[in-house]
């Protein structure tokens, strides 16, 4: 930070003392580089907020239009799996935060450990998600591809869910709208899962780099910025979980 302040005071001296190897040529100082990339990451997250914003808006409006269909359709989701996944993701956020901490403290072993834990938890999330998706496929709840609304025309045909909720049969036109719920369910969780897959791919790359000692020499920008992305994906899930699983019980 001394570089930028000294030039700002009017000293024309070119401050070119020992540039760390990770400093790109067009930056005046490492701090400027860190600030710029960190800020860029935040701006990217802004676009991500708005990207999911369109989906949330659609969900909000459609849920209000087809309230009975959305309520009964959401009863098909397993709160147990949803809660487990929320916990998995929150813990992975914690391990990611600890990964950033290890990088800042320059603890290579800890960094690899926490990044690997995050990777494992991310995979666990996707694993649970795929169990849920498989169940949707088996029950003909994949809109457009493998679909039947019989569980909503005749809820008693699905004893597992029926025993818990005692849903009344929906009128055929309303039952058809459950497909909309599952369309949004797959669009939102699918978009979220896509972000998870991208995150895990980057994590794999980062673990390899970390084993070579990349992030524990004081250059934490990459880990820090990836952490922001990971936490953002966590936050999206924090909202998806109540909206899709919880709020329609009563």
């Amino acid at each position: 930070m001394s570089d930028s302040t000294s030039t700002a005071n009017g000293a024309v001296v070119e401050v070119h003392h020992e540039h760390p190897p990770y400093q790109r040529h067009h930056f005046e100082s490492v701090d400027q580089q860190f600030d710029a990339t960190n800020f860029a990451m935040w701006l990217f997250l802004l676009t991500e907020i708005m990207f999911f914003g369109g989906l949330f808006t659609s969900y909000l409006i459609m849920r209000n239009w087809y309230y009975p269909a959305f309520v009964e359709a959401s009863h098909q989701l397993n709160i147990g799996w949803g809660t487990a996944n929320t916990a998995v993701l929150i813990v992975s956020s914690f391990t990611m935060a600890m990964g950033v901490w290890s990088a800042e403290m320059r603890k290579k072993g800890m960094l690899i450990l926490f990044l690997s834990l995050t990777w494992l938890l991310g995979m666990a999330f996707l694993g649970i998600k795929s169990i849920e998706y498989t169940e949707k496929w088996e029950k003909f709840h994949v809109p457009g591809l493998h679909w039947s609304d019989s569980s909503f025309l005749n809820p008693a045909s699905d004893p597992e869910v029926y025993s818990e909720y005692h849903d009344k049969p929906l009128a055929p036109d309303m039952a058809a709208k459950t497909e909309m719920y599952f369309f949004l369910y797959f669009a939102m969780t699918g978009m979220h899962a896509l972000h998870m897959i991208i995150g895990i791919s980057i994590l794999t790359f980062m673990i390899i780099r970390a084993r070579q000692g990349a992030y524990t020499t004081g250059h934490v920008t990459y880990v820090e910025n990836f952490g922001l992305y990971w936490h953002f994906v966590d936050i999206v899930w924090i909202f998806l979980f109540p909206l899709l699983y919880l709020i329609s019980r009563y």
Binding site: L43, T47, E48, F51, G53, P143, L145, E179, F183, A187
Partner: peptide, 25 residues
Amino acid sequence: MVLGTPVLAITLVLVVLERTVHIGV
């Protein structure tokens, strides 16, 4: 650009999905 464009992006994704799976919002 940063705040507006992603909304168009997701809208077009939804249009494309709607055309491919024939269900949509």
